[in-house]
């Protein structure tokens, strides 16, 4: 943050020294890119405030008059609260489980000696890029056999597993950066290895933990494929599966469809507004996850 603030202060002197000829094309290009990024969102917002009639007559312009009725219609047409709840339960459950097992595992990788440590860590890290679609058929059959298909528990376990390689990779790297001197005195005082993890490493790792939780939550929350296959029941639909169905149902009532999309995006957009640096830092740290 301080670095960015310093950068802000530098702007005046540096861009002045850099030849003003670049300023105009530079901002033109940036504004054009920003326009391309925002146009679809502006379309969604403006359209959600039009009546179907208004939209039919004028797709490009501003709503005239502003009409709020699409939001209640969307809420009646789709079970947003249920979908939202399902996504929240799955995200919370799997991220919690993954964080717990990854913290224990990363602790062993970062702070303990054992045969095969490097190789095991390399294999686990490389699992990050294996696409879930490859595992989906055996997972579906395994869950069906164990009676976990179409249950929260089954899906939580699968999602936790899918994000765990990233969690382990990130936490191991972070734990390694914590200087050993900090925990040395605790070791001298005879603290158990678990106490050191719980009372010293985890609190010191708060920024890394938050980043990791943000990235993993975003991943589970936004997944479509796994939820589509493993939760094939109306009452277990996640928000992503729900809005996909909703989007095709309201294919011809675009304002209602857009109202639904905006409501579905709200939680993540709000989270982004408040925790932006964790999103940005997390995506850079866990580049692989896309």
């Amino acid at each position: 943050m301080s670095r960015e603030a310093a950068g802000e202060a530098e702007v005046v002197s540096r861009s002045a020294g850099q030849g003003g000829w670049l300023a105009v094309p530079r901002h033109a290009a940036l504004l054009f890119a920003t326009f391309l990024v925002l146009a679809p969102l502006a379309f969604a917002i403006l359209t959600s405030l039009k009546t179907l009639n208004n939209y039919g007559l004028d797709k490009l312009g501003f709503p005239d008059p502003v009409f709020w009725g699409n939001f209640p219609t969307a809420l009646r047409g789709g079970r947003f609260f249920l979908w939202f709840l399902n996504s929240a339960i799955l995200s919370f459950g799997s991220v919690f489980l993954s964080t717990a097992v990854a913290a224990l595992g990363a602790y062993a990788f970062a702070r303990m000696e054992f045969p095969g440590r490097g190789a095991l860590l390399a294999v686990i890290s490389s699992l990050m890029i294996v696409p879930p679609v490859v595992m989906l058929i055996p997972l579906f059959i395994l869950l069906t056999r164990t009676g976990l298909n179409n249950t929260y528990w089954g899906a939580i376990l699968v999602y936790a597993g899918l994000v765990t390689p990233f969690s382990v990779y990130m936490l191991t790297n972070f734990f390694k950066t914590i200087p050993f001197e900090i925990i040395e005195s605790a070791v001298m005082d005879g603290a158990s290895s678990f106490d050191i993890l719980r009372k010293m490493l985890l609190p010191l790792s708060a920024p890394a933990l938050i980043t990791m939780v943000v990235v993993n939550t975003l991943w589970v929350w936004n997944d479509l494929l796994v939820a589509l296959v493993l939760l094939n029941k109306d009452s277990l639909r996640t928000l992503m599966v729900g809005i996909t169905v909703f989007g095709s149902r309201y294919n011809s009532d675009v304002p209602v469809a857009m109202a639904g999309m905006l409501m579905a995006s709200m939680p993540m957009v709000l989270l982004y507004l408040f925790g932006q640096r964790y999103f940005i830092r997390g995506m850079v740290a866990g580049a692989v996850k896309g």
């Binding site: 097992v101 595992g105 000696e113 054992f114 595992m135 055996p138 395994l142 597993g161 765990t164 382990v168």
Partner: peptide, 21 residues
Amino acid sequence: TPWLYLAPMLLVLIFTFGYPL
């Protein structure tokens, strides 16, 4: 000791990656 710490993680990974792959 290290294997006690690794065990829960390994179980989860074997379930989602090891067995399916």
